[in-house]
């Protein structure tokens, strides 16, 4: 074996290396890459699921997007949803992580319960909240409010409140995840740096904004992007709690894709929407890579 030439060792390595990655890569090509190529192709077709017809229409579907008020609405709603979910999630999870991170009594317990919804299925979580948020005084949430003299709205059936409701239930569902990640990052903060800052007299907001936040910045960036992409993908919460209503006020992109493809049977047009969604996610991901390089200065 030792006598084998360098070249044949290389060849051997190449064969073994590829042998090991082939299952994953082959599956990736079949189940990720190929469908991705197809979605671009379908996006340029008029393809009816029910009628089984398809014909090439070039960029017509993309042209149609911006004259389709429902698409524009779904795009705007997706942005509203993200704009609601992301800051709420980040602020609360960072606060909780910093507050609970110090190893106080009960931390483990709180971490445990905040994490319960994370492992629960989105379907189960949505089912329970649909009941809890019933209008009138029928739902427990409104019943509690009525006990303190507040007349709660018909949460899932009033414009505005419906969006607020899905945002809050979604934040609660995923909060635990980010709390955990931030807790990990908080624990990894270099104690000496913070100690030094404390000795220099930094505390409270100053200590947080000048010292801790910069130290946590890489994690914050990463969590932000992951949360944004996650919020773009919301489906079960919407389908089961509001069905996109009322007035389409919770119709988000993914649900609109589902609607167009499987309710109105326009799989071609739906694919064009999927391409737009892909574009958004791609830009966000690239954004994360670039920004990670920029903030990596802080990485310790």
């Amino acid at each position: 074996m030792k006598k084998l030439s360098l070249q044949s060792t290389h060849r051997r390595e190449a064969i073994i290396g590829w042998a090991f990655v082939t299952p994953q890569m082959a599956g990736f090509i079949i189940f990720v890459l190929l469908p991705l190529v197809s979605v671009f192709m379908y996006g340029m077709q008029e393809k009816n699921l029910l009628f089984g017809t398809s014909s090439f229409v070039g960029l017509d579907n993309f042209g149609r997007l911006f004259s389709d008020p429902l698409f524009v609405k779904s795009l705007v709603n997706t942005l509203i949803f993200s704009a609601g979910v992301v800051p709420l999630n980040l602020i609360f999870s960072l606060m909780l992580a910093l507050y609970l991170g110090g190893g106080k009594t009960g931390t483990r317990f709180v971490r445990g319960i905040i994490f319960l919804p994370v492992v629960t299925s989105g379907v189960a979580w949505a089912i329970v909240w649909r009941y809890l948020l019933q209008g009138g005084t029928a739902g427990p949430v409104n019943w509690f409010l009525s006990q303190v003299g507040i007349e709660g709205p018909n949460w899932l059936f009033e414009k505005g409140w419906a969006m607020a409701s899905v945002i809050v239930t979604r934040v609660m569902k995923n909060l635990g995840m980010n709390v955990l990640i931030f807790m990990g990052a908080v624990l990894n903060m270099p104690g000496d740096v913070i100690e030094a800052a404390r000795i220099d007299g930094a505390k409270g907001w100053n200590l947080f904004s000048k010292i801790k936040l910069p130290l946590l910045m890489p994690t914050v960036m990463m969590v932000t992007i992951v949360t944004v992409i996650g919020s773009m993908r919301v489906f079960d919460t919407i389908k089961l709690m509001t069905d996109g209503g009322p007035e389409g006020s919770t119709m988000v992109m993914v649900y609109y894709i589902y609607h167009q493809a499987f309710r109105m049977f326009e799989t071609g047009y739906a694919s064009a929407i999927a391409v737009v969604l892909f574009g958004i996610v791609l830009v966000l991901t690239l954004g994360q890579w670039v920004s990670r390089k920029r903030v990596s200065y802080y990485e310790v």
Partner: peptide, 17 residues
């Protein structure tokens, strides 16, 4: 009708105020 149903629902929903 599949299109009509989905699109008109957006407007019909406004009734329930």
């Amino acid at each position: 009708y599949p299109q009509i149903e989905v699109e008109s629902k957006m407007s019909f929903d406004k009734l329930w105020q």
